[in-house]
Design a protein around this nucleic acid. Structure first.
Lengths: 202, 202
DNA sequence: GTTCAGACCGAACGAACGTTCGGACGGCCC
DNA sequence: GGGCCGTCCGAACGTTCGTTCGGTCTGAAC
């Protein structure tokens, strides 16, 4: 017998899965009814609108990924290590929550009004957090602004090609992306052996 | 007096702009009618369906970006320089054709059947081209497969944050991304002065 | 002057959409 | 046992959707 909270949780999980598969506009409330086992009108007992479903998925996902990132980064002292921890956490979280993170990445422009404002604030918070980490690593002539968005691009693009359960383990993907961003593709030997890149064993 | 070819060209350009603004599913044929100056039924004189509009935008865009990439790469002999040329061309093309490239990146899963097959073939061709360039740069312990998608992520994510006409010139963005991918964020001095990174003046 | 094809439009089609409404059912309180 | 609230549903609402149909207009061909 499901509690009210559980019911909303599973409804959001189902909705995230279908939104990820067919897109927000490509999904009908009838699709969600079929997927969740609730009737069409029954869904409206838990949310006020289709847009609120999208909002709740994005809001909860942002809250969780931001909290996890702060925890992961707090365990490192060295600026480079903190940066590496952020990347590995983000990629790990992404591969572990593909539907929600795809909905977060791909349906970023579907909300309007107060819901859009709230999500934009979360996004600014998360981007600012990464930007600060980048600024604390002292490198000359590099824009932390561009670097932040380039890094998010490397990481968020995952949803377009990566399939969990394939032949790339999530931890390996996280290490590769962290190493690519920090050391670059040309990867001089002097850096290939850095503790950061080697700490997860390749 | 517009010729038939011109009319289709401007229709596709208008459609790409609106698709980029509101998304494929978020755009109605009535929106396109308003934006193009054609009547609702008049659009169907040029295309058979809304999906064919999307297909033509994507097919033409892929053809153009692939042709341009081959040209740009052909002018360099050194593998690293060819890789850099690919990145700078892709980013330059992206910033110069934002609506079409956003539609290409963001509406990649909306087509079905024979149209989807054709676009997927183009995509495979383009990804394979970059993968070959990556393989010709001899670096140990790096997966060209992951590197290709990471690089496309850095570059294609542009549409979510970059605004042409802002304070980042397209050429500067292209240089920064090329440098980030090749040398990494930590960018040791030994590589900061490499001819490739310096060739476009930073 | 008639024919004809290409370019284009107004009005309408059936289907699908998000949402609403009135009510049914079951357990808890008094 | 009667009232009540939370949970959930079937049926329908009005709107919007992609697409179609029957037509008009223009300019070239003969």
């Amino acid at each position: 017998m499901p509690t009210a909270d559980n019911r909303l949780d599973t409804l959001l999980a189902d909705a995230a899965r279908i939104f990820a598969e067919r897109g927000f506009h490509g999904t009908s409330m009838r699709d969600l009814s079929r997927a969740s086992g609730l009737s069409l009108s029954g869904i409206y007992h838990y949310v006020e609108s289709k847009h609120e479903l999208l909002f709740l998925i994005q809001e909860r996902c942002f809250a969780e990924v931001i909290r996890g990132a702060r925890e992961a980064v707090a365990q490192e002292a060295d600026p480079e290590a903190r940066l590496g921890a952020f990347v590995r956490h983000h990629v790990g979280f992404f591969t572990g929550h593909m539907p929600e993170m795809k909905v977060l990445s791909h349906e970023a422009e579907e909300l309007t009004g107060i819901m859009a404002t709230a999500i934009r604030a979360r996004k600014r918070e998360y981007v600012a957090f990464l930007t600060e980490l980048l600024e604390q690593v002292d490198v000359p002539n590099v824009s932390p602004h561009i670097a932040a968005y380039a890094l998010f691009g490397m990481m968020n693009w995952i949803y377009t090609w990566y399939r969990p359960g394939g032949d790339i383990p999530p931890a390996h993907l996280a290490d590769e992306i962290a190493r690519l961003f920090l050391d670059g593709y040309l990867q001089p030997e002097s850096h290939a052996a850095r503790p950061l890149a080697a700490s997860h064993g390749g």
